[in-house]
Design a binder for these strands. Structure first.
Lengths: 152, 152
DNA sequence: CGAATAACTTAGCAATGGCTACATTGTTTC
DNA sequence: GAAACAATGTAGCCATTGCTAAGTTATTCG
């Protein structure tokens, strides 16, 4: 008596959509690093005039070796241009990514803070969350944010 | 003439904290899969009585091979117990992780929906965001959510 | 200028997380 | 019980993302 341990025929009919979210999350993971680097490069360029491997390493909390290889991939994918032993520059594509990322990042931080989350935690959480905030959700965050001009 | 391209001495003094967020994000990435699997296993066990490799694969949007290896890691790390060609069961530790993940997941979805995000997008975004929502932020979400009993 | 130092690069290891192709085991069905 | 088929497991590929160690190149400074 097989006891019907495996009910192999009656595969569940509906739970397909669930997979979609996971697929999207994986897709987003693939571009997270590009976004983080683009943002960091843009910031450093503003702050110090150029983005160097060591500075990126310090800022992202990885070794300079990791940065080096990441930059190679970003260059391969057209986000940055760099020459050996020289500073790193964003391409048009990279600048685009950086500004979008930066805007989203800051909006997420501001939104969390507006909810009462401490600035420290808001910044920590935003770093991970931001990459998974779609345009629609970002718009909702923006909408829920208290307006700038009307502080009364 | 070196033109002072590299101003190597004046390393920026403050941008250290930024790295902390990235480090946390990487830490969270490391447990994302455990959380997703634990939640999926818990759900499937409820829905169909047991969690099988194929079902997990379908639900998570990966091949059964990927599931197989992930399960091996989860078993190594004490989240699940499984025997070859048999269903997968959560350990106490795994159940704990699953229930926490599930609660957080549902709260994030509910919160996004309450902001006006469509259910579809809320579910898609939550899948990626949830892993980076700290206890503090989760509490803020909870607090911002309209109460259950007072729908007026 | 040349040595010292800082920055960068390269080589190579480990873990993760996808995959396809193929082998094995379990279940169902005749 | 054996064949057919579904499910699971194994081997091995590739890419990513960390790392350390060791070699190169630039910059700075005596």
């Amino acid at each position: 008596m097989p006891l019907k341990k495996n009910v192999r025929k009656i595969r569940s009919p509906a739970p397909l959509p669930r997979a979609e979210g996971h697929r999207q999350t994986r897709r987003e993971h693939a571009i997270e690093i590009a976004e983080d680097y683009a943002e960091a490069i843009a910031d450093l360029t503003l702050e110090t005039g150029e983005a160097r491997v060591v500075d990126l390493a310090q800022r992202l909390g990885v070794t300079h070796v990791t940065v080096n290889r990441a930059i190679a991939r970003l260059q391969r994918d057209g986000f940055v241009s760099s020459q050996p032993y020289r500073a790193i520059f964003l391409t048009e594509k990279g600048r685009h990514l950086a500004s979008a990322s930066k805007r989203r990042h800051e909006l997420v931080v501001a939104f969390l803070i507006s909810l009462g989350v401490s600035e420290r935690v808001a910044r920590l959480d935003a770093e991970g969350m931001e990459h998974h905030v779609s345009a629609e959700t970002l718009a909702a965050f923006q909408g829920a944010l208290p307006r700038k001009g009307q502080q009364g």
